[in-house]
Amino acid sequence: MSFDVFADPAIFLVQLLNATQQGLLLFLIASGLTLIFGIMGIINLAHGSFYMVGAYAAYAVAEATGSFWLALPIGVAAGIALGYVLERLLFRFFYERDHLYQVLLTFGLILIFEEVRGMMFGEDTHRALTPEALDFSIPLLGVQSYPAYRLAISVICLLVALGLYLLISRTRLGMMIRAGAYNREMVQALGINITFVYAAVFGLGTGLAALAGLLEAPVASVEPGISGRYLIISFVVVVIGGIGSVKGAFYGALLIGFVDTFAKVIVPEAAGMSVYLLMAAVLLWRPTGLFGRPA
C-alpha cells in the first residue's frame, strides 16, 4: 500500500484528471445501458459492441480521410443507425421475453459483431490518430504535463452529459421516456407510439456507446475483444446508480472512475476488486442503487 500519490500535488492532479476522464467515458457507455435496461427491460450484453463500432470507425475513417473530426459524426451516426435497425429487427420481439432469451440473443450478437470485425479489420492492434489540433500537452504544476486531447475527452463527455440531462428533463421526448419507464401501457393509451420511443432510446444508447469508442480510440488500442473492455464495469455502474437512472449512471460512473484510478496507485494488488467492493457496499446501503426507485 502506498499513499505517495497524495504527496505530490502534480501527480495527484494528473490522477484526478485521469479518474474524471475515465469516469465520464464510462458514463457515456453506462447511460445508454441503463436507459435500455430501465425502460425496455432489455439486458443488452452486446452494448460493448457499439463501443467497438465507434472505436473502429474512428480508426478507419481517420485512416482513410486523415480527419478524426470527420470520424466523430460518421461513427456516432453508424452507432445510432445500427442500434435503431437492430431494435426494429430483433430487440422489439424480446421485450416481453425472459431475460435469459435476451442474454442468449445479445451474446450471439457479440459473436457476430466480433466475427464481422475480424473479416473487415483483421486481428492487428490499431490506434486512431490523435486530432492534430489537440496533439499537445498542457503543463501542470512543476514538471508534469497533461495531454490536451484527454482533457478534450472530458469536456466533450461533460457537454454530452449536459445535453442528455436537458433532453431527458426538458423535452417531450424526455417526458415520454420517463413516463414509459413508469407505465408504458398508459403512454400508449394516450396516443403515443411507444415503439418509436423505444427505438429512439435504443439508438440514443448505442450512439452514446459508439461515441465513447470514438473518443477513446486515439488514446487506447483498437484491437480484437475491445467490445468487452467496459461491458462488466458498465453493468456495475448501472447497478450502483440505480437501474434506469441516467443521473445515477453519471454519479456511479464518476465514483467508479475515482475508486478504480486511485485504487490502482494506492493498493495495486487489490485494485481489481475495488469497484466490486464498492458495488457491494452501495448495495448493502441502498439495495436499489444510489438513485434507483424503491421496488
Binding site: 417526458m175 420517463r178 413516463a179 419507464a181 413508469y182 398508459m186 403512454v187 393509451a189 394516450l190 396516443g191
Partner: peptide
Amino acid sequence: RGIFGNLSVRENLVMSAR
C-alpha cells in the same frame, strides 16, 4: 388514474398534448 408519478403535474399535462 394512471398518473405518471415520476413526472411533474405540468409534464403529465403537456407530454401527450395534441
